[in-house]
Design a protein around this nucleic acid. Structure first.
Length: 506
RNA sequence: GGGCCGUUAGCUCAGCUGGUAGAGCAUCGGACUUUUAAUCCGCUGGUCGUAGGUUCGAACCCUACACGGCCCA
């Protein structure tokens, strides 16, 4: 990134290219009618390709269908008294052919002064060039918006990652793959919404600003409400509100929205990220695993047309049933030197954890140690879709314990390509036990765990009215989109990823 | 927070052992009525991220800082 050309608009344009374009704009203003907004197009590029792409040149010449198109000029080839240009609209690109003698007087001369990047509107008729490219033979053309800044080079596009993230608008103009990623993201969310609606779920919106942040183990952002003179937290999860709604009788609810976690930024973490969270009464975690598997397979077929994904060179098969194994089984499988007996021996696990360079805290219990060891040694090795089940009770304070073994819960996480994609469980609906779990969390918070949960008395009150047996799950949309678009970084699937503020924006 | 790497023209990138900076594309001027990374001819364009230091001399060596990338916590 250049630090030159600072923000003061009266002082800018040290850059010759910008100065030249500003001069062209000044002439346009002087001639009157700059920045008009009375041009109406009647066709998009992709529509033209769809309607006329298969027609022969002769058929098109006979019908001479008149069209009006508009978009950003992304290519310009002037050859004496005739020119080609490509314009790009939200659907794609279409070529324009201009011949001086087909245009009003002076128009061709004006066109020659316009720049790649300018927004133009044109009318003419659909035809095919000698090479068979569907194009519009122009009878008149107008400049609609003057672009003052030159676009990146046409061949390499914009490659600098910092520039692509900070100036996403430029990235979207010049990089087809970026447009594709965000269009696919939109389709994925659209498809998920349709799937939940079809299953009878009700879409809801719950507070983003919460007096007590709950539903996950994470550090929250704090903000302040002036009129109430009260601190509020940006939500780390919608979970406790969604369960209140199930108490209220909305037995199947879902929400697709942002969560905020005050943690580091990395290729997998952004401080704000999108989560699909849903709850279904009279279901348990097995039901949700089955549904998740179905859902992902359906999603892949809908948006990609295949259930065979390729992520960063690695094949991912969503077509065959996902593996399911418990945290215990997974740890033992990937740590052959560990015995089942050692997994239940806190002292032994502490030693193992330290050998793994895990920063063991004195207040950690057996479950926390198991989970840390799982995350360090096992999670990243799970490449094919795998449900990891039976998470320890003490790291799952909102989940229902297993009847057969109350030390673990009816919880799962879905791991694909070494990353957590979803997390779900049978909900803890025993108000007294939930209150006890909150008290344990508060004790851990007091012991220094900043991610431990708060005691939410209103949530307990809601449970006391009676939460039906319910299962709930969160699916990380950004990570799902990464998987589906083969994106190496979460920033590639966020239109405006979190970046450190620039000292002086250009 | 730690380690490694990067920052040079509008964009994509070269730049050797330290000797005051180059290409392609774009721009600008010219030629050209079916091109599509158009072609051909000619000309421009730089406070080498910032600030110090070493040196006769720094894009290059050293230090700090800023921003970014990757990995680890």
């Amino acid at each position: 990134m250049s630090n030159r050309n600072r923000a003061d608009p009266t002082q800018q344009d040290q850059n010759k290219l910008i100065a030249q374009r500003r001069e062209k704009l000044a002439q346009w203003r002087a001639s009157g009618g700059a920045f008009p907004n009375d041009f109406r197009r009647d066709s998009l590029a992709a529509e033209l390709h769809g309607r006329f792409g298969e027609r022969t040149a002769q058929e098109l010449e006979e019908t001479a269908v008149p069209v009006k198109v508009a978009g950003r000029m992304v290519g310009k080839r002037v050859m004496g008294k005739a020119s080609f240009a490509h314009i790009q609209d939200m659907s794609g690109r279409i070529q324009l052919f201009l011949s001086r003698d087909d245009l009003p007087p002076e128009r061709y001369q004006q066109f020659k002064g316009w720049d790649v990047g300018d927004i133009i509107g044109a009318e003419g008729h659909v035809y095919k060039t000698q090479t068979g490219e569907l194009s519009v033979k122009i009878s008149d053309i107008r400049l609609l918006t003057k672009s003052l800044r030159p676009l990146p080079e046409k061949y390499h596009g914009l490659a600098d990652l910092e520039a692509r993230y900070r100036q996403r608008y430029v990235d979207l103009i010049v990089n087809e793959s970026a447009r594709h990623t965000f269009i696919l993201r939109s389709r994925i969310i659209e498809c998920l919404r349709a799937a939940f609606n079809a299953r009878g779920f009700l879409e809801v919106e719950t507070p983003m600003m919460q007096p007590i942040p709950g539903g996950a183990a994470a550090r929250p952002f704090i903000t302040h409400h002036n009129a109430l003179d009260a601190n509020l937290y940006l939500r780390i999860a919608p979970e406790l509100y969604l369960k209140r709604l199930v108490v209220g009788g909305f037995e199947k609810v879902y929400e697709i929205n942002r969560n905020f976690r005050n943690e580091g930024v990395s290729t997998r973490h952004n401080p704000e990220f999108t989560m699909l969270e849903f709850y279904q009464a009279y279901a348990d975690y097995h039901d949700l695993m089955n549904m998740t598997e179905e859902l992902l397979r359906h999603l892949a077929m809908e948006v990609l047309g295949t259930d065979q994904l390729c992520y960063q060179g690695e094949p991912i098969d969503l077509g065959t049933p996902f593996a399911r194994r418990s945290v215990r089984e997974a740890i033992l499988e990937h740590n052959p030197r560990l015995s089942a007996a050692e997994l239940d021996d806190r002292e032994a696990l502490c030693g193992v954890a330290r050998e793994l360079d895990i920063d063991v805290r004195p207040h950690w219990g057996l479950g926390k140690l198991q989970l840390e060891i799982f995350e360090k040694t096992t999670e990243h090795r799970l490449r094919e879709p795998t449900f990891i089940t039976e998470y320890p009770r003490d790291v799952s304070p909102l989940a229902r314990p297993k009847d057969a073994n109350p030390l673990v819960t009816e919880r799962f996480e879905l791991i694909i390509a070494g990353r957590e994609i979803a997390n779900g469980f049978s909900e803890l609906n025993d108000a007294d036990e939930q209150a006890q779990r909150f008290r344990e969390q508060v004790a851990e918070k007091e012991a220094g765990d900043e991610e431990a949960m708060f005691y939410d008395a209103d949530f307990i009150r809601a449970l006391e009215y009676g939460l039906p047996p319910t299962a709930g799950e969160g699916i990380g949309i950004d990570r799902l989109v990464m998987l589906f678009t083969d994106a190496p970084s979460i920033r590639d699937v966020l239109l405006f990823p979190a970046m450190r503020a620039q000292a002086e924006p250009e």
